[in-house]
Design a protein around this nucleic acid. Structure first.
Lengths: 107, 107
DNA sequence: TTCATTATTCAATAATAATTGAATTATTGG
DNA sequence: CCAATAATTCAATTATTATTGAATAATGAA
């Protein structure tokens, strides 16, 4: 993950609606959620939710698929892990503390 | 760490200069760096650097102290760890994957 | 095919953030 | 105290982001 991708991901998460959407999808796990379910759970206008889902998806934090007339969004755990690794890279020049290692890659 | 703090921290990091400053300070470790050293290393105008250092500090990501006529900025590793924990909280409803546990708290 | 549902895109407005240069504050040494 | 160094604050401009309502696209069922 390069600097530009990291900035996009951080900017995507740095907004109330998007942070809530992302966290809801992290909790939801592999099943994901539809925009309708997210809109209901978070009380966001559909237009606004669409905008934010697109931002998160463009940033690489979400994956989208279709199931019938519903779309399903899922958190991209690998992207989240890469992001965290980037922030802690070469922490204290490598020693004495280990780098932070996200352990959530098997989702 | 609450939602508002998390958003402030993410927004602070979602900018090229600030991300570079923060990462440089993560690498620098407990010694920290002066604005002058950061300005030289990253080729940023002093005024602009000051603005960004303030943003990062207000977001809780940096700590400031004075040493003679120099100021010293250091990364706040606890804040960074809290931030990462927040993003992965209740990942997949708690199972089957463990939550990401940043291991860089002894810096 | 026609209607209802689900969700997105578009265009306009409102709000927030970044950069620049000039002026100011704080500290140390002569 | 006065000059030099280190860094910040202020004010103006420019650029980016978010929200809203109306219109559009895609799917499935009668």
């Amino acid at each position: 993950m390069n600097e530009q991708n990291v900035i996009r991901a951080l900017a995507a998460l740095a907004q109330e609606v998007r942070l809530r959407v992302f966290r809801a999808l992290v909790v939801a796990g592999p099943e994901g959620m539809t925009p309708g379910a997210l809109a209901a759970a978070l009380a966001v206008a559909p237009t606004s939710l669409s905008f934010h889902l697109k931002e998160l998806t463009n940033a690489g934090l979400l994956m989208q698929s279709r199931e019938g007339r519903n779309l399903i969004y899922r958190a991209d755990y690998a992207c989240m892990g890469d992001l965290m690794a980037y922030l802690t890279e070469n922490c204290c020049r490598g020693t004495p503390c280990a780098e932070a290692a996200p352990s959530c890659t098997n989702c």
